[in-house]
Computed example of a mutant assay.
Amino acid sequence: MTEEKRTFVHVYKLFEKFGFDEAFERSAIMELLELKGSGASKFLSKLVQADIIETVSGHGKGKYKFKK
């Protein structure tokens, strides 16, 4: 599987679980996608840079949500 396809599958799984309204953190990504900490961090960075997710304030540090 190519990296692009794997990323798409990961984003789909993440969105299926959390949708637009629920915040998630790195540990949830590690568990759901079976990634190690560094892989989950890289994945989060990739999604933030692609403007797919955004940081959420008021829910503690390191929380993210999908952008609408």
Rank of each mutant, 00 (worst) to 15 (best):
E54D: 14
F43D: 10
L33Y: 05
V11H: 01
R6H: 00
A40F: 04
F18K: 10
I53T: 07
E3A: 10
K17T: 09
V9Y: 12
G37I: 04
L35G: 06
T7I: 15
L14R: 02
L14T: 14
K61R: 07
I52S: 01
F24E: 05
T55I: 13
M1K: 10
E4K: 13
L14F: 11
S38K: 09
A40P: 02
E3T: 10
V9W: 14
E54M: 13
L47I: 11
K17S: 09
K63D: 00
K5F: 13
G62V: 05
L33T: 01
G39W: 01
A23C: 11
V56P: 03
K17V: 03
M1V: 09
I52H: 05
G60W: 03
G62I: 02
K61N: 03
E34V: 05
G62S: 04
V9T: 15
F18S: 09
L47E: 07
K65A: 09
G39P: 04
E16H: 13
R6M: 10
F20R: 12
K17R: 13
S27Q: 14
M30E: 15
K13E: 08
F66D: 05
K63Y: 05
K63N: 06
F24S: 03
L32I: 09
E22W: 04
G58W: 00
E22G: 00
T55K: 14
G19S: 07
F15L: 07
S41E: 07
L47P: 10
H59W: 00
E16D: 15
K65S: 09
E16P: 04
V56F: 00
E22V: 05
I53E: 09
S57G: 14
F20T: 04
K68R: 15
Y64I: 13
S45M: 11
R6I: 10
E25T: 03
F43V: 10
E4M: 11
F24P: 06
I53S: 02
F18H: 08
M30G: 08
V56L: 01
S27I: 14
I29E: 05
E54Y: 08
A28T: 02
K65W: 05
V48K: 10
S45C: 11
E16A: 14
K63H: 05
F66H: 08
K63A: 08
L14N: 06
A23T: 06
E34S: 14
F15P: 05
K5A: 15
